[in-house]
Design a protein around this nucleic acid. Structure first.
Lengths: 237, 237
DNA sequence: ACAGGTATAATTGTATACAATATACGCGTT
DNA sequence: AACGCGTATATTGTATACAATTATACCTGT
């Protein structure tokens, strides 16, 4: 939603608040803090060697990123991602990634196109070798390039939000099966549609790419990991 | 993005931070603070009779709502909405309002359906009388009902964000011409499609509703008001 | 043993004091 | 007059002190 601008990112890595924010975000996404765990200002502050002030401000940001939830006068809790949330996000992303690919077809620069081709080439390589971390990283980057290429700050920012939001889930699935190869093949098709200037096709392929990613996730145990969260959430009505 | 929950809204109207946040949001949307205007912590604090602390926290929230932009060690500035931003938002909303209408077709409750019918009936009435404020209010409410009815916290929250974001612009257009009547007629068609259980049609109509709203906006002087903002934005590269 | 209530502790909310940074201005040099 | 430099000032960043609220533990009476 923000008029995102890397140059003046308020989550400045040189400010304490920015560092706390990034550290906490990473820790939540990596699962260091479990769902519904309470985050206490003083504890976090002491752990990072800062006072409560920057911690509190980081909390406010984390809340609007959807990673924690702040209950006034009570505390901050790591948000649970329900199976339904994941489904909703992929429904939304299916449409928006499609829009993004369509726009990118008109707007993509030569440099971005080249990085995209390189990305796919590299992903093939690491897929052969079974380098799971690199595959995940390249997958992230592929979508990032697409977001940048669509030339819409708002769409870019929105998609990044959702993308980051599902990282907690995705991390566990992309690495556990053969989806990596299929995913990269779909990336290639999207890339070629964009290269050929076929915006409609690029949109359609990107739509389907998300649907496939979600279907695969469901097949490979999303239920086990996140299926029960819904009920837990109900405890706070 | 947040797991939005009215009951424990962190923008608590009883906390100072919450009051500052809501006041500033309103003032920005109403145009009290112009685009690119700098908001100073002490000035705002004095005006509202609070210290800098709650003001700072409100700033962090406003930034993630996209209403201001914080430059580290420099200041907080009201974000400019460029003509392109508006265009992008309506493109995105076209897809998402469509998705929302499609989902609502399956999920809408009896009460929500009734309020929707009442909404359209009332809007007709006020349209006849030329009550512009009520028309705008009912238009907002129609979309809110739809957001609630789709039964997706994430989609609801995302759409609300975008909707609020364009309020600054929309306020100036809905009131100035005959779009009110056409808009309400489109609402009626969407409502009837949902009532008839035709999800595909509801989606299509909601898509088109957004496109029409945008086209109308362009025809009626969006350029004059927001067309030049793009260049101004470039001053901070 | 248990219910209720009160005191106590823990935690968040707010204000203020202090530090770091950026901006503006003046002064001197060239 | 233009430029560089340093100091003064304003503004944001952070820490700490204090207030308000909520949670916990303990005590008391039945």
């Amino acid at each position: 939603m923000t008029n995102y601008d890397k140059k003046y990112d308020a989550n400045d890595k040189y400010s304490l608040r920015g560092r706390v924010f990034q550290k906490l975000r990473e820790d939540i996404l990596n699962g260091k803090y479990k769902e519904h765990e309470e985050l206490k200002e003083v504890a976090i502050g002491e752990e990072l060697g800062v006072s409560r002030t920057p911690v509190r401000e980081a909390f406010r940001q984390l809340e609007l990123e959807g990673l924690i939830r702040i209950v006034p006068n009570k505390g901050a809790y790591v948000t649970g991602i329900t199976a339904k949330d994941v489904k909703d996000i992929y429904m939304i992303r299916s449409l928006l990634e499609g829009l993004c690919a369509r726009l990118a077809t008109e707007k993509i620069t030569k440099e971005q196109m080249e990085e995209m081709e390189e990305n796919i080439y590299l992903a093939d390589f690491h897929e052969e070798k079974g380098h799971l971390d690199q595959i995940a990283e390249l997958d992230n980057r592929f979508h990032d390039i697409l977001y940048e290429a669509c030339d819409s700050k708002l769409l870019e920012h929105t998609l990044r939000d959702f993308h980051r939001y599902v990282l907690r889930v995705r991390k566990k699935t992309l690495a556990t099966n053969t989806r990596g190869r299929a995913s990269n093949e779909e990336h290639r098709q999207i890339m070629e549609a964009i290269k050929a200037g076929d915006a409609k096709l690029a949109e359609k392929l990107a739509n389907q790419h998300m649907i496939n990613a979600y279907d695969n996730m469901v097949k490979n145990g999303l239920k086990e990991v996140y299926g029960e969260t819904t009920e837990e959430n109900n405890k706070d009505k």
